[in-house]
């Protein structure tokens, strides 16, 4: 069933993606990720020596600071910081640099829907730019559900407000491997179908959620192709800047 979207996209079409890295001179790694009009700037500093008091000194720790476009830092920002921190902790290899802190700062340049996924993608690209060792990349997507149960990907802010429910999903990126097919499957499902993070808003049925998951997988494959291409093209001739 065709849904008419204000900007003329189809249900499964994402907004144009753009990623530029190494845009801040002083930061060890930085990236600017935009999906349509939503733009987020991420900067990574680290690894720096020492961890905070309650943290485990046998692992590296990650600190996230979220700066909204306007206004003061409130509960929503603290929630985003916690989600990002946990997500990034799960993709970094924490045992390589124990007793260090890597700090990731996110600045919202413009919010036009799908803000948290854009921020996660930006943070991931910035971590790659800084040369922090990662297990795999994280690819984030926003799926929303209309009243009739159809799934619309990457909604803009107006669309988000009209939808019944929407959710942010983060998957590991798809793997191009030289090993044979079966080695990276867990319980018959490929590794990139596992969810790193899921945050939902609004009420939906369980079947709708699983339906969204499938659409999310397909979309994340496209985003991870884009990420791979953009990282490869800029990887040549860029010396690492980690201190």
């Amino acid at each position: 069933m065709e849904i008419d979207r204000p900007d003329g996209r189809t249900q499964n079409q994402l907004r144009p993606l753009a990623c530029s890295r190494n845009i801040l001179n002083r930061a060890h790694g930085s990236a600017r990720w935009s999906q349509g009009d939503t733009i987020v700037l991420a900067a990574v500093y680290g690894p720096k020596a020492g961890t905070k008091k309650n943290e485990n000194p046998e692992k590296a720790s990650i600190e996230v600071i979220w700066k909204p476009k306007t206004g003061q830092v409130g509960k929503a920002e603290k929630e985003y910081e916690l989600i990002l921190r946990r997500t990034l902790q799960s993709i970094c290899v924490l045992t390589i640099n124990p007793n260090t802190t890597t700090s990731v700062t996110l600045q919202v340049v413009n919010d036009d829907g799908s803000l948290l996924p854009c921020a996660i993608n930006a943070a991931c690209a910035a971590l790659v730019d800084a040369g922090i060792p990662l297990k795999h990349l994280a690819v984030a997507i926003c799926c929303s559900l209309t009243g009739s149960g159809s799934v619309v990907l990457d909604p803009s802010k107006l669309e988000e407000q009209k939808m019944e429910a929407f959710m942010y999903l983060v998957f590991p990126n798809s793997v191009h491997s030289v090993l044979p097919e079966g080695s990276l499957h867990v319980d018959g499902e490929p590794m990139e179908h596992g969810i790193i993070t899921s945050v939902t808003h609004g009420v939906m049925s369980v079947d709708d959620y699983l339906h969204c998951l499938e659409r999310g997988h397909a979309a994340s494959a496209r985003i991870s192709d884009f990420l791979r291409r953009s990282l490869q093209s800029q990887a040549l001739g860029n010396p690492s800047k980690a201190a």
Binding site: T87, D187, I196, T197, V199, T200, H201, M204, D208, L213
Partner: peptide
């Protein structure tokens, strides 16, 4: 029995559809 929220804030273990179910 409608799903109001499914919240998984990161974490080292990936959740597959079977675990979600």
């Amino acid at each position: 029995s409608r799903l109001v929220s499914l919240y998984k804030p990161g974490g080292p273990v990936l959740a597959y559809a079977s675990a979600v179910q």
